[in-house]
């Protein structure tokens, strides 16, 4: 068609002058963010696979507690890595032991699953193009997805901690807690410290969430993003064991994960914990920015 046709288009068919619908009000309603977020939460927590994953994680402390309970009078009773040996003496330690058990692999897997679903999963299902055509701004969608994944990971940590607390209380009882130095502090103080451990573990996972979301924007294959996220966590842990790489250790994603033991000192050194969280903050900032710049510019051809 010539440019003239563009300016002077042919009359529409044989129809009478077509009535045109008045543009609808297209202003954002108040609470639109909340509505989208709630819908996203329903999606994440309504998915049977995700609930199964949460249940599986919650079963870890239950299993651990039962094993320790059954074997407590045998020759191996009271032995084990981390804080496992202390559980039979005080059920409170089951929370810490269970979180330590889930940290290296199961929690990274949880992050991989949730973040892989978030973008790559929607791309593979083809639902991403329909969300963007609704339209949802890509920045808003990414933000909501990030909040939902973080919430899911937080729920996973909480599920482990709560089931561990209940299991520990039932099987071993809760009592005043003996710190690393041998000092004993009252139960209420102990509960606070254990809550601190759970909170620190959850916050320590934020960097990996950002990495997982970034990986999720790179592919249309959610399983690929999931696997890559787990691999990142494992490689980071492996690098952390090589003394030759001591210079980069403090910046590693997983290096500060076990700093939670700080909560079991008489004087909690908030500086150490703050440092760990600052490293996570840096990972979040870098990979959050990468995810954003990738997601807001990528062609959606799925």
């Amino acid at each position: 068609m010539s440019p003239a046709d563009v300016l002077d288009p042919p009359a529409p068919g044989s129809r009478a002058p077509a009535p045109v619908l008045v543009p609808q009000a297209t202003v954002a309603h108040r609470g639109a963010w909340g509505r989208l977020l709630r819908s996203e939460m329903r999606l994440v927590f309504g998915r049977r696979r995700n609930i199964a994953l949460l249940s599986g994680l919650a079963a870890v402390p239950l299993l651990l507690g039962v094993v320790l309970f059954v074997t407590q009078d045998s020759a191996l009773g009271g032995q084990g890595p981390g804080f496992v040996g202390r559980v039979t003496g005080n059920g409170l330690f089951l929370v810490i032991a269970a979180l330590f058990m889930c940290l290296p692999f199961l929690l990274p897997l949880t992050i991989g699953v949730a973040s892989g679903d978030a973008i790559a999963g929607e791309a593979q299902a083809g639902t991403l193009r329909y969300l963007l055509a609704v339209p949802v701004s890509r920045t808003r969608l990414l933000a909501v997805k990030a909040v939902a994944v973080l919430t899911f990971v937080g729920a996973a940590v909480l599920a482990i901690a709560l089931v561990a607390l209940v299991t520990g209380a039932v099987l071993f009882g809760l009592s005043d807690i003996t710190l690393l130095s041998g000092t004993t502090v009252p139960l209420a103080d102990g509960l606070l410290r254990v809550a601190g451990v759970a909170a620190y573990v959850a916050l320590s996972l934020t960097g990996l969430v950002a990495v997982g979301l970034f990986l999720s924007t790179l592919t249309e294959v959610p399983v690929g993003a999931m696997a890559a996220t787990v691999v990142v966590a494992i490689v980071s842990a492996v690098l952390d064991t090589l003394p030759q790489l001591a210079v980069i250790h403090p910046a590693l994603l997983t290096h500060h994960w076990l700093d939670v033991a700080e909560f079991l000192r008489v004087q909690v050194d908030w500086g150490v914990l703050g440092q760990g969280l600052a490293v996570q903050g840096a990972w979040v900032a870098i990979f959050g920015a990468l995810a954003w710049s990738r997601f807001t510019t990528a062609d959606v051809t799925s």
């Binding site: 609808q24 009000a25 297209t26 202003v27 954002a28 309603h29 609470g31 639109a32 963010w33 509505r35 989208l36 709630r38 819908s39 999606l43 309504g46 998915r47 049977r48 299902a125 083809g126 639902t127 193009r129 329909y130 969300l131 055509a133 609704v134 339209p135 949802v136 808003r140 969608l141």
Partner: peptide
């Protein structure tokens, strides 16, 4: 409607529509 329909497989048709509508900041809830 772009290149065939695409929805969340484990949500009902109705829930899928609700999800799309919730994503629309300008839609009246």
């Amino acid at each position: 409607l772009v290149e065939g329909p695409a929805f969340q497989p484990y949500l009902s048709g109705r829930a899928n529509l609700a999800r799309l509508d919730a994503s629309d900041a300008t839609a009246d809830p």
